[in-house]
Design a protein around this nucleic acid. Structure first.
Lengths: 246, 246
DNA sequence: GCGTGTCAAGAGCGGCGCTCTCGATTTAGT
DNA sequence: ACTAAATCGAGAGCGCCGCTCTTGACACGC
């Protein structure tokens, strides 16, 4: 990378950033598929062909924007998780942070959670930033478990078949958390983003829009569904007395 | 409309249908934003400007495709609901039908449940077909209630504030169903489409993909969550003995 | 100081949505 | 049956778009 080593390098880094900024500005107004390299170059006072020195194609620029969006959302989620002590409150705060970010940046949200852009194939470099929100949520469950704040969920069914192995990959991120809870976490995760997408895309108009109260109500119910009661689970068969060990 | 009154009317109706068919074919291959009027006109062996005699703009053609997609999905859902006696089985069958249709027609699914197309503003004519799936699901709950197949959900919180009025609009479609259940129905509804979108858009890759087992497991848990146990609810305080009244 | 690599600029390719005009044909009213 | 109006496909053309290639100027490292 040799960041800023020569004048040329510095100019290049700055122009790259300016292109992305202009692209983000245009994205916020017009949406991803209206994003035009020619319009960006006009805004920057350069000729369109010069852009290709910095991004070899429109898709590459989109990829950069996608990664930035994932990172921005991930940072919001991580900050929200840090700001709350109680695991239930932290879970709710993260979900609210995701919704707030989505409402504030609808086109960037669509870019990463909406239908994929036309011929665009997401490269591998997007996988890791894409997982940040999920990692935060799973981490919260791990924290709740170690603090004895996870209710046992006796009535929930155990996963079977292929689900057993799939859940095992999640257990690596949230050690100790029972499989039943992890399954329900994925259910809550899909519910969260389904709810946000429906709100953003107008599917709730006429019923639950404005959705603030419904959103809060749904989050509370899904937290209960997860066993995140917010109070120490008096009987945690997996780790009795864990709450006292910290 | 004067359908088929003159030779010109008949030719016009047929060409309109052929244009939509070609558009749907192109949509299935390329996706909505790659849909090109010029490509359609090439496929039909006509000049691009002639298309504008049938659809005044690309957006109008998209609207027609959107309405057709909503109707196709709605028909699948209604058929699935008809084919099952037991309310729980019917609910599960409708959800599976939605997922199957989405997997079979991913671009049409994206057209109606994905991020909105660029400058496209959905006209009012899409609202009614858009509600068909939701109406089917709510209708099933009404049926389950009148048959005494809805568990009371004592532990679920009652809606408060604005939610009370919002739920009331749903109660008009599913008469008698308690507000608690209707709220949970919206939660299950958003979960369903969130799950399908995540599967289609690759968010489950690396964890729950392939998603068949997770999907079935999640549906079963959400049905329980709704109080759709599949067996008569022995104590239905709202309508005791309703199961015997039919 | 001089070759080398990098840069912005310009022209140009094919494709796009869309508009307008122009004859040909069909329809509808008398 | 004749004519005026409506509708039709075809064609040319407008301003966009992503992207490529070439050219000449500039800054860099030796």
């Amino acid at each position: 990378m040799n960041a800023g080593r020569t004048a040329r390098d510095r100019a290049r880094a700055e122009l790259t950033r300016e292109i992305k900024d202009a692209a983000r500005r245009q994205l916020a107004v017009e949406g991803a598929e209206r994003l035009s390299l020619r319009a960006i170059s006009r805004e920057l006072g350069m000729v369109s062909s010069a852009l290709y020195r910095y991004f070899p194609s429109r898709d590459e620029l989109l990829t950069a924007l996608i990664i930035d969006a994932y990172d921005a959302l991930g940072a919001e989620a991580e900050a929200a998780a840090r700001d709350e002590e109680n695991p239930r409150e932290a879970w709710l705060a993260v979900c609210h942070a995701v919704r707030d970010w989505a409402r504030k940046h609808p086109h960037e949200y669509s870019l990463i959670y909406g239908s994929p852009v036309a011929g665009y194939q997401a490269p591998e470099s997007t996988i890791q930033p894409a997982s940040r929100v999920a990692v935060v949520l799973l981490g919260l469950l791990g924290r709740a478990y170690s603090e004895g704040m996870l209710a046992p969920l006796d009535e929930a069914p155990e996963p079977t078949g292929l689900l057993v192995e799939q859940v095992a990959t999640l257990a690596a991120i949230a050690p100790g958390v029972p499989a039943k809870v992890l399954i329900r976490a994925v259910i809550a995760w899909t519910q969260l983003f389904g709810m946000i997408s429906f709100e953003l895309y107008g599917q709730l108009v006429g019923t639950m829009d404005p959705a603030d109260e419904f959103f809060a109500h749904a989050l509370a119910q899904m937290a209960d569904f997860l066993g995140l009661g917010g109070r120490p689970a008096l009987t945690n068969p997996a780790d009795p007395g864990a709450a006292a060990s910290l």
